[in-house]
Amino acid sequence: MTTYRFTCIVCPLGCSIEVDVEKGRVKDVKGCTCPRGAEWAVQEVTNPQRIVMSVVPVDNGALPTVSVKTEKPVSKDRIPELMEFLAELRLEAPVNIGDTVAEWEGVKIVATRGA
């Protein structure tokens, strides 16, 4: 059995959490003081997810790049693939905040800065 220890990030309390995992299944979650935290802790251990932000080059804009983010969190272990995908993008002005500039595995890549 493995015990994962980490700090919860759901709220500023930062509870110290312990999650026991045996044969790939969560056996116990200790240290949380709220249900949101417990839910996040399980997710963290079974399929950690992150919002990813980066910049993409853009032509003919006021600045050479546009900042982007994934519209929803993606699996942490697939982030390198997503970054490879983003490395191939090149945009053309105009781009508006909120525009979907690309899509990856069903996840929209959204501009957070205009060009």
Binding site: M53, S54, V55, V68, T112, R113
Partner: peptide
């Protein structure tokens, strides 16, 4: 700067 926002436009994280 040439744009408004101060330091914010480069803080691309949530």
């Amino acid at each position: 700067n040439d744009y408004l926002g101060g330091i914010l436009p480069q803080c691309i994280h949530p």
